[in-house]
């Protein structure tokens, strides 16, 4: 019994791939992007430690509720993408496309909410030069905003190809490539949200 168990464990170990899902090139890109965000986060934290009161004061002016909805939108879209990948692995292109379009729609919701937040800030006269907190808040969130747009473009391209029955259980690297990038965009926001909106 124990022997059989060991045997399956070993076989499972051998079956595990040495590379992450998706194209290796996108992972090199993801690593580079993660490095940018890591440096940005650290810069925020250290700039904050010098002027904590200013940061706490202006952090209180942010709309935490819209940020909550945005977090939920990204989490949900990431979950949809997982379902899309599973559908692609099963060879169900139509289902895969539907899940991916749903994820793109969630990304769109994120953009709309974030844009309304920006509109409020700009109406209040906030700019990059207002103070260090707003400089970081606007820079970080806008940089992430651009990544959401890029991620949506990638997901849409994959969804279009899936809609044309372009993937198969043996060949769906494209879906995993787009999915990996999108999860990265989600993951970065999971750090950004508490760091900028909550931690004080």
């Amino acid at each position: 019994m124990r022997g059989i168990l060991m045997d399956t464990v070993v076989r499972h170990e051998q079956a595990r791939p040495g590379y992450p899902p998706g194209d290796l090139a996108i992972w090199i890109f993801i690593l580079a992007e993660l490095l940018v965000f890591a440096i940005f986060f650290a810069a925020y934290a250290f700039a904050r430690s010098g002027q904590a009161e200013l940061f706490n004061h202006y952090q209180a002016t942010l709309n935490r509720d819209t940020a909550l909805f945005n977090t939920l939108a990204l989490l949900t879209s990431s979950y949809f993408v997982v379902r899309g990948v599973v559908a692609a692995r099963e060879g169900n292109n139509a289902l895969c496309a539907r899940w991916l379009w749903a994820a793109v729609a969630m990304g769109g919701l994120f953009l709309v909410i974030k844009a309304s937040e920006y509109a409020d800030h700009f109406a209040a006269g906030v700019s990059l030069s207002s103070n260090t907190f707003y400089m970081f808040y606007l820079s970080l969130t806008f940089f992430h905003f651009m990544h959401v747009i890029l991620g949506m473009v990638i997901l849409a391209a994959v969804a279009v190809k899936a809609g044309r029955d372009g993937y198969s259980p043996d060949d769906h690297t494209g879906v995993e490539t787009g999915a990996s990038y999108w999860h990265m965009v989600d993951m970065v926001w999971l750090i950004l949200f508490p760091l900028v909106y909550v931690m004080r």
Binding site: E13, R16, P17, G18, Y19, P20, P21, W27, L31, L34, L35, F37, A38, F41, A42, A45, F46, S78, Y79, V81, V82, A179, S180, H183, M184, D186, M187, I191, L195, M199
Partner: peptide, 27 residues
């Protein structure tokens, strides 16, 4: 789970963990 790194061997299994350690410790 979402990226599926749980099922990967070698360095790529730990790539997110290693990354998180950087901003995590600096923050």
């Amino acid at each position: 789970w979402f990226m599926g790194l749980r099922d990967i061997r070698g360095i790529w299994r730990w790539v997110v963990v290693i990354w998180l350690a950087v901003p995590g410790s600096l923050i």
